[in-house]
Amino acid sequence: MDASILLIGGDDFLSTLLDRVHNLLNCAVEVASNPGEAVPLIQAQQPDLIILEENQLGSLKLCCEIKEQAKLAWIYCILIETPAQVLDEPWLDYIWDLESKTIALEGGADAYLRLPLERTDGKPLSPEILAKQDQLLRSQILVGLRTVKNHRELMRTNDILSAIALSDPLTELNNRRALDWELPRQIQNARTRSEVLSLVMLDVDYFKRINDLYGHPVGDRALQLVSSRLRHNLRFRDTLFRYGGEEFVIILSNTDQKEALLVARRLCRLIGEQPFDIDSGLELNITISAGTATLDAKDDARGSSLLKRADRNLLRAKSSGRNRVVGSIDALQDMDSE
């Protein structure tokens, strides 16, 4: 079975449970002598299931702490009590079991088992009773592993759905929804680290003419090829998004105004200098226009004002002849000359 289990307890508990678990299931089993020793193992290895000795100090607290951490809360915690004997009166033993189970479950454990080691008279438990205990232990472990498996499958499904929701199906780039999520995060990082941040907003020139002359399938193919050329000519730290239609946005981390202009002009040249081979009988010469903007202290945390400045500069580039870049520096110079 492809699963991992961590046993936490004293020497007697570990020696007893380790053999029993190995005999019941073919799993990878790690051990820790106390909750403090277990914490770094849990953080690093994230086992599927944890079995803790109930009467060890800190066991229930560890269960609670695991459940309070989103990245660990899926780990299944079984608290096991191994009293030396059952109580003299069966009804007292039953009440004790109910009270202990209630405390364990309310305290953060997913399951509680009480597995006495011997009879009231001090004699060993019969093989039949031990076999029933092992059946119960195995069943509880399997319940935990099924729960963890279902959680992981759900997380994988959510990851796939999130990837689909944040991806543009035509170009396979991040889409506008992804930009709405990523830009505020990068703005916060830039301000926390006192770094610069810039945007490039670009647009395929006369794209409507391509659709009108050759049809939408050719337009779609042109967008795919433009996207690919842009993606393969960006720096490692740059993030490209399809903003909508024939518009794209690039987040340039740790990039100031002058560097943003250089990046955008280089991309402009790379798009315009070589025709795009749409199919064996059609080549298109395509150019782009771009506007850049750099984060300043007055920009809002979501990046709306930063995007607006980049868009405004893109419109200036298009109105001044297309196939060119206008940045914040250029826009300021234009305003001064006016």
Results as ranks from 00 to 15, higher is better:
L225V: 05
L307K: 00
L25E: 09
V143D: 04
C63A: 13
A111F: 07
R138E: 10
Q85F: 13
A190D: 10
S59T: 02
E99W: 14
S4V: 01
I66G: 07
K208H: 04
L267R: 03
N174M: 14
L240V: 11
A131C: 14
L52Q: 05
I160N: 08
L17M: 14
E246C: 10
V218S: 13
L307F: 01
A301D: 11
R235I: 02
L72I: 04
V226I: 10
P275N: 15
L223W: 08
E338Q: 12
S167T: 15
I160A: 10
A163Q: 14
N323K: 15
L72F: 15
P83E: 11
A109P: 13
S337V: 02
N313I: 08
G9C: 01
G272F: 06
K308S: 08
L117K: 12
L25P: 15
L137Q: 07
W181I: 05
I50S: 04
P40Q: 02
G144L: 01
A301N: 06
L270S: 13
L137G: 08
L202V: 05
K308Y: 10
R176H: 14
R231F: 08
R324T: 08
K101F: 01
E81F: 05
L173I: 13
L87R: 06
D11A: 07
S15W: 05
W74F: 13
D238K: 05
R324G: 03
Y94A: 15
D159N: 09
R119S: 14
L79V: 08
